[in-house]
Amino acid sequence: MPPLVQLVDVSRSYGSVAPVRALRGVDLEVDSGELVSVVGASGSGKTTLLNIIGCLDRPTTGSYRLDGVDADSLSDSRRAGLRSRLLGFVFQSFHLLSYRTVLENVMLAEVYGRREWAGRAERARNALAAVGIEDRADTVPTRLSGGQRQRVAIARAIVNQPRMLLCDEPTGNLDSVTAAGILELLGGLYEAGLTVIVITHDPGVAEWSQRQVRLVDGRIGSDR
C-alpha cells in the first residue's frame, strides 16, 4: 500500500524576479495513522509544506502523491474534491463564519462534501459531541472562548470523516491550559486512527507528537 503522503524532491518558490525559495528539495513520506509534527523557525517553510500536502498549493518542481494519486496534475475541481473527501483543516485563527451558528459552521464542510441532506445535522452534532461542545451547537462562534472555537473548527474538520487532519499552529492563539486540552483532543483522534500532521513552533507540542520533522531553510533538517 502506498504511503498516504509522498513528496519527492519538492521545491516551491514565489515570485519570478528574485524568487523566494520556501521549500528546497523536500522528500517526505507519511503513512496512514501517523501523528507528525512539523517544527521549524518562522519562514522555514512549514506552512508552505502543509499547503502543498493539503492540495491548497502546488509545488514548483518535484512531485506530490496523495494516497497514491499524483495530486499536482489534477484539475482545480478534482483537487477541491480531494480536499472535501480526504482532508480536514484546522487553522490557528479558527476561520469560523461569525454569522452562522456553531452547528451550521460544522455543517458547512458537509455542503462541499455533497453529503445527503438527511443526517447532516445529526453528523454535525456527533462531531461536536466528539470534541465536547455539543451543548453550544446553537450559539454563534463569537460567544465562544478561543479553546471552544478551536474545538468547533476540529469538529468541522472531522465531520466528513477525512483520512488526514492538517493543523496549522492549532494552539498558537490559546493559553497553555486550553492548548493542552486541544492537544489531548487531537491525540484522541490520532488514537482513533486518523492521520494527523501538526505544524507548530511550540517545543511542547513537538515533544507530544509521535514523529517530529524539523524544517531548516526549506529543507528537512531532522526527521525522528
Partner: peptide
C-alpha cells in the same frame, strides 16, 4: 479561502 479549503471549486 475557508470554503476552498473545505472543498469548494472555483
Amino acid at each position: 479561502g475557508l470554503r476552498r479549503a473545505l472543498g469548494a471549486s472555483r
